[in-house]
Write a protein that binds this DNA or RNA. Sequence first.
DNA 1: TATTAATATACCTTGACACGCATATGCTCT
DNA 2: AGAGCATATGCGTGTCAAGGTATATTAATA
Lengths: 132, 132
Amino acid sequence: MEYIKRVESVFEIIAEPNRRAILSLLVSSQQSVGEIERRLRMPQPTVSKHLRVLRDAGFVESTVDAQRRLYRLKPEPLQEVDAWLAPFRRFWSAHIDALERHLDRMDRTKEDQSTPTKRKTNKKVTRPKLRT
Amino acid sequence: MEYIKRVESVFEIIAEPNRRAILSLLVSSQQSVGEIERRLRMPQPTVSKHLRVLRDAGFVESTVDAQRRLYRLKPEPLQEVDAWLAPFRRFWSAHIDALERHLDRMDRTKEDQSTPTKRKTNKKVTRPKLRT
DNA sequence: TATTAATATACCTTGACACGCATATGCTCT
DNA sequence: AGAGCATATGCGTGTCAAGGTATATTAATA
């Protein structure tokens, strides 16, 4: 028996790679614990523990089939993620043109975090102490 | 100077609530560190550290403006999340199909398109987004 | 009832990371 | 150069979650 059920956000839940793998596996059809165990090649206690977390968070539900439990997906939590993403979708669709120009330039440069922006030698607008 | 850059998945990045808050703040427009600090009421080192993580992961980029750094969103990582979500979207649209057909008549779901932090019970039916 | 299969849970250890605080770095203006 | 603002980073600490191993629970079957 658990004492307190930590309320993890849906984002923390899907941050775990094994849990995402389980969810992806369940998207096609329901699976028993043993099937998940074999397909993802992870130890059974690990599977059970992640399923427990997923179930507590509402990502999955289970039904009993003899000694097995069949787990299947529930849509709501991932829809929540989807909903959080909505404003960003609007953002990037609004910036498609600029994005394309960006992609042209950066390609796959791993970022210039170590080079302290040589291009800033050209000082931009000197701003007065903007009190916002 | 950092030694090895742990490759955190985009999901681990957005698992952190403060980082999600920063991203949501940036979706409207670019912001300086100080602005983020004030708007989200978190200590400056915290903001900088999260921005560092976000920048390393490609969620944001910055430009120099005098002593300030202006941070703005980059779309790719969140698009990656969006892409991961795609199979599940198909799943749940298949599941709510019947319900959706019912509700389609009153199709008045054009409400809170502009309220970003509406993380309540966002139980609204996400439209199928049928593959074009 | 004993046995085996399937799944769940307890305990322990380890490592990641978020935070607070202090300090360093960098830029601007006088 | 020096003061002051804006931002970044280093370090120490506490928390929490994931994995491993062993064990408990529940169901089916002999």
